[in-house]
């Protein structure tokens, strides 16, 4: 029909402004309450999802932010004190963890070996070198959640006082499921790679309980010597 054919545009009166073929910027805005509501709810839902899941991930990783790192070892000297950052406060209170206070000692955790690979409880590791000076230290193997695990010998740790050492004071510990000669740190008897592994080195009565004193101290290296 002739009425439907394109006509020269004549804007007459107010209704003409609602023509859809006007350029977008000068087209009048008519709000759609439902669309606005949908947009706001989408923003709210996405923001809650992002905010809560990112908080959960950071807390669940159980790695406080202000770590002091020496090779594969991490220490959190400020966690569990009044100066702790909000993340480590959340992590420590959620886990009901009682930290080693600075007058007692310092705990260092390794989640990776010196080459940067995640520790695997089915592998064999060589932990060698020396620790910062401490009156006593213990090395414990725990799983990825920080829990102790059953081992073949029933022992889950080695103590500095019972170590065999080289004449120059360095030591070499073999961490493995099966018994080894020398210093043996037993790992989980029945473990799969997904269980995870952490080494926890606790230095008792050590001068290096503050972060600054940890710069330049020598820590043992962790080398993977074999995997099944």
């Amino acid at each position: 029909m002739s009425e439907t054919s394109p006509q020269p545009r004549i804007i007459s009166g107010e209704t003409g402004w609602y023509e859809t073929d006007l350029p977008r910027v000068i087209r009048p805005y008519r709000s759609h309450p439902l669309r606005t509501l949908a947009a706001i709810s989408l923003v709210l839902a996405m923001a809650s999802l992002l905010g809560i899941s990112s908080a959960y991930l950071v807390i669940e990783r159980e790695q406080p932010l202000d770590a002091v790192t020496i090779g594969p070892w991490h220490a959190y000297p400020k966690a569990g004190t009044a100066e702790a950052d909000p993340y480590s406060v959340a992590i420590y209170t959620r886990g009901a963890v009682i930290p080693l206070a600075s007058g007692e000692g310092l705990a260092l955790v390794a989640r990776e070996d010196s080459a940067g690979h995640l520790l695997d409880p089915t592998c064999v590791y060589r932990i060698a070198g020396q620790t910062p000076s401490a009156r006593l230290w213990t090395l414990t193997a725990v799983d990825g959640r920080g829990d102790l695990v059953e081992t073949l010998s029933g022992r889950v740790h080695v103590v500095s006082q019972n170590l065999l050492r080289a004449p120059d004071g360095t030591f070499e510990i073999t961490a493995a499921t099966a018994p080894h000669s020398g210093n043996w740190l037993p790992l989980a008897a029945e473990a799969s790679a997904s269980d995870g592994l952490r080494f926890v080195l606790r230095l008792y009565d050590a001068p290096v309980t503050t972060g600054a004193a940890l710069d330049g101290v020598s820590m043992p290296v962790i080398e993977r010597t074999g995997c099944p």
Partner: peptide
Amino acid sequence: LCLAAIIH
């Protein structure tokens, strides 16, 4: 993003 940061 701003709202997510606040919620976080």
